[in-house]
């Protein structure tokens, strides 16, 4: 009975994805363009590369499956609006919601609520990308749980489109929490982190911290009440998060920033500092760089995908 079941994922490729593969073609340098909200990341794209855009559109959303399938060119704002109708979300949370889903994933930037919802790569269930030969490759799977084959989706997230161009993704959705409350204060954000059970975000600028609590209204109120004696009061939200530089460190190392001036906002519990000025990429060990170079060599030997960008 099962011999007819061959390559079931490959047989369901959307026409928009196939069309995108045709546009990417088999030769010549190509640069994939989203909303240009993260255009500075990884260095300038080669000017000579032909610009292509991934398809957009929300193609499947089954609320009881908690999955959504969309074109990589779909904007985060459009996805959010669509999912909100059924009380769901994908907490990508880019600094600018005009960003495309594919752009956020290519950068691999997790949003400011990562403390509660996890890393952006863990929201990706299946990817379809166009490879350097112009062919569509499917990896991962459409279900919320899957370990079928190598985890290419996690390799693609954060690869800046240098290994393949994201065309379509299936993401895991989550229920929008029934209550949310920001608090602000000059209390110790590290002590607050230890005091709370799974806060959504703790942003800190060296003098003040903004804390987001989400969940059941009773719990949000009770957790907020714990913060009041620690020097925090309800507020509308944090200041805009600087969108240019991301400095990565161990969560415990953030403490060294106390008292340093400047316009930065750090994610406590995560170890990320958002800055207005660019932050140079951290070095990669020689063994890891060799593996990354080899991956590039095997997957895009002619360096035609997003030339100029450096993911490492």
């Amino acid at each position: 009975m099962s011999d007819q079941v061959t390559a079931s994922l490959a047989s369901r490729i959307a026409p928009e994805v196939a069309e995108f593969a045709g546009v990417v073609g088999e030769s010549g340098p190509v640069a994939v363009v989203g909303a240009r909200t993260h255009w500075h990341v990884g260095g300038a794209a080669d000017a000579g590369a032909r610009e292509v855009q991934a398809p957009c559109g929300i193609w499947e959303h089954e609320p009881s499956e908690m999955t959504v399938r969309c074109g990589a060119g779909t904007t985060v704002a459009e996805l959010g609006t669509h999912l909100a109708r059924t009380g769901q979300m994908v907490p990508l949370d880019p600094v600018d919601a005009a960003a495309t889903v594919g752009g956020v994933l290519a950068c691999g930037f997790s949003g400011h609520r990562r403390l509660r919802y996890g890393y952006v790569r863990d929201l990706v269930l299946q990817t379809r990308h166009v490879d350097a030969t112009g062919k569509v490759v499917t990896a991962g799977g459409p279900t919320v749980k899957n370990v079928s084959g190598y985890d290419l989706p996690r390799l693609l997230v954060g690869s800046l489109g240098t290994l393949g161009l994201l065309a379509e993704v299936i993401l895991r959705t989550l229920p929008v929490p029934p209550a949310a409350q920001w608090l602000v204060g000059d209390g110790d954000p590290f002590a607050a982190f230890d005091l709370l059970y799974r806060p959504s975000s703790i942003l800190w600028n060296g003098s003040h911290a903004w804390i987001l609590l989400e969940g059941d209204p009773v719990d949000v109120a009770a957790e907020a009440a714990k913060l009041v004696p620690a020097g925090f009061d309800p507020c509308d939200g944090p200041p805009p998060i600087p969108g240019t530089g991301r400095e990565s460190m161990r969560p415990s190392d953030l403490r060294v920033l106390a008292g340093t001036g400047g316009e930065w906002l750090a994610e406590v519990g995560i170890g990320l500092v958002h800055r207005h000025e660019p932050v140079p990429a951290a070095p990669v060990s020689s063994a890891n760089a060799a593996l990354m170079d080899q991956l590039k060599q095997r997957l895009d030997p002619d360096h035609r995908l997003n030339p100029g960008r450096r993911a490492w």
């Binding site: 691999g108 930037f109 997790s110 790569r121 370990v147 190598y150 985890d151 290419l152 996690r154 390799l155 997230v157 954060g158 690869s159 290994l163 991301r246 990565s248 460190m249 161990r250 969560p251 190392d253 994610e267 995560i270 170890g271 990320l272 990429a281 951290a282 070095p283 990669v284 060990s285 063994a287 890891n288 760089a289 593996l291 990354m292 991956l295 993911a311 490492w312």
Partner: peptide, 21 residues
């Protein structure tokens, strides 16, 4: 070698994610 890291966003490709599984 060490893949990934304890820091927020280790540099380069997610070789850790590839290795797991």
């Amino acid at each position: 070698t060490t893949l990934g890291g304890v820091e927020a966003e280790p540099a380069g490709l997610d070789l850790r994610g590839l290795f797991v599984g």
